[in-house]
Design a protein around this nucleic acid. Structure first.
Lengths: 337, 337
DNA sequence: CTGTTAGCGCGTTCAA
DNA sequence: TTGAACGCGCTAACAG
């Protein structure tokens, strides 16, 4: 790989490798004079310690694994920034893995983590994930996991969410207030915590307005499957006049379909999307979004993880942190809580 | 870290560590019978090799560093997916680093790479980067670098771009055809290859239409600085009637300002943005974008990188790959080349 | 076909 | 205050 290592430094200074090592770690058992000499040479030779050798020896990789379903999603990319804002200053590195909503990939990735490649994991579950044996196995090996956004209620670990019930409720109420009477709910899967919570909020809002929830207005499935289901829905004689998309990608799909079917937004159909697209409400005044504090959620997740990493003994414990999300429409921003 | 390693496997099977190691690597010098026994045990004990020990020994990390200015940008997040589509199947891992447009951070990151943490680097330069000594130093140590999008012309390495001159030209022509006579050009910095190319195209298009380019219509600076410059520009009596934003973030800033200043888009001001936002033209029919093949650029970068990694001897060579970008407006898509 | 030996670069005894 | 020796887990050269 490279060339300048402890040995080389030691040789040119006529010191032993271990002395140099200690000097670089600012050990108290090394004289100031020696430390200075070592540091000077290290700097002038541009010495960079080999992280893999160090990991091997210390049994710590100073690396965090981030496992998310997507990166081309405003929520997740913002969350990454939040994570990095904590992780980087600590001198840790970030390994990013994408599951593309597949449970199998998620399992493969976590399996690989058993190698000790990462010291801890921050993740948001795939749409397919309906059991978490792979998470538990990893935790049992002493590697802490923090979940954010797409959590798993029964799991014994830190979990960062927004109040999804409340935001689902508020969003639905907003649509009803705008005159919608047939509101559809679009979800990626029925095992996703966030979708289910939001769905409950949706149902509550409908009930309060004496509108009967209809099963055929609740769409469940991967993006490809949903696309066809939504298309059918929008073509049916009793098509919905409002859509609540619990995931950004589904909102995009819905938009494309409305366009394709010549349904004008918001006259024919109103849409509310869970999305952090900075541009969304700018680009289209009629668009309403539920905006989550993605950056802060990433930060909170990283902070919770470090709390566990810094313990001498890691003992998985459930811990829930709930941050508020915002309902943003052109002229107003309302806090959902 | 973990517990089950080669030694343990070897002990329980009464074999030597090296035999087990070779068996796991499917070496031809191990009998089928032994291989089977080893693989069976490995699977049942859930053995996962320690990547750091292996890296240390082999002097290969099977890890790629991706260095980009931002992740909350549709272009870069899509490019990441393109990169992963090549890197993952090869069994390589992806370490992502964000420069936030800072040269200093970029230098720190590359400096760290001298440790051998990564086998190769794929990067897009920060807005501040006007020299590439840090890249050359790294390459000189045998670590290949591939640049994409924000390249550095004089650099001796593979570079993946779109035809920025052409797309700047087409975009400007499009604005002129829509009736714009005072078109402003928004850029992050004057050291950015893409901005300069696009600027040249812009100038050419103006010249062809007998419109004199005006320096005060060319805005240069970080997002914060630009924001004030653009605001001033939009408030001046001879404000522009068209904006060409060479970076997504600047387009967002421009949008926000138009809104704030009550300038209706597209009546008062027309905007063309270099952006890959899937939703952009959907959300607002009046929006025109230059869409780059971000996913394919990521792929191409990764492929070029592996070409270098797989060489027995790495010898930096310049290599340019140019992919076409698209000008997308509501009813038409035109290829820029 | 299998085992022995010797490191990769670093950090941690323990002895001087 | 410094250094010698050992080993983290794995791979590679060389014997047998």
């Amino acid at each position: 790989m490279e060339n300048v290592n402890l040995k080389k430094l030691a040789q040119t200074l006529n010191l032993s490798v271990s002395t140099v090592s200690k000097a670089l770690q600012d050990s108290h058992e090394i004289s100031q004079e020696t430390k200075r000499r070592v540091l000077d040479l290290a700097k002038s030779l541009n010495y960079v310690p080999n992280p893999y050798a160090s990991s091997l020896r210390r049994k710590k990789s100073k690396t965090i694994g981030v496992v998310i379903p997507e990166v081309t999603d405003s929520f997740f990319s913002l969350a990454i920034k939040g994570i990095e804002s904590i992780v980087q200053p600590k001198g840790y590195h970030t390994l990013i893995y994408l599951t593309y909503e597949s449970l199998a990939r998620e399992q493969t990735i976590l399996q690989e983590f058993q190698s000790g490649r990462v010291d801890g994991v921050i993740m948001s579950l795939s749409g397919e994930t309906n059991r978490i044996g792979h998470l538990e196995t990893l935790q049992a090996k002493g590697i802490p996991i923090v979940l954010f956004d797409r959590i798993f209620d029964e799991a014994t670990m830190a979990q960062i969410t927004t109040n999804d019930f409340e935001s689902g409720y508020q969003a639905t109420r907003h649509l009803i207030e705008q005159g919608c009477r047939r509101v559809a709910f679009l979800s990626l899967s029925d095992s996703l915590s966030i979708s289910n919570q939001r769905l409950e909020g949706y149902k509550r809002a409908l009930a309060e307005s004496q509108i009967a929830a209809q099963d055929d207005l609740i769409v469940n499935g991967s993006r490809e499957i949903s696309q066809e289901l939504i298309r059918t829905l929008l073509q049916s004689p009793q098509r919905p006049d409002g859509l609540l998309a619990s995931v950004e990608k589904l909102a995009i799909t819905a938009y494309q379909l409305c366009e394709e079917l010549n349904l004008t937004i918001p006259d024919a159909v109103k849409i509310i999307a869970f999305s952090n697209l900075e541009t969304a409400s700018l680009l289209n005044p009629s668009l309403t979004t539920i905006t989550q504090p993605a950056f802060d959620m990433g930060k909170a997740a990283a902070i919770a993880l470090f709390r566990n990493l810094e313990k001498t003994y890691f003992d998985p414990q459930k811990e829930s942190i709930v941050l508020p999300s915002l309902l943003v429409c052109r002229n107003s921003t309302r806090r959902c809580n």
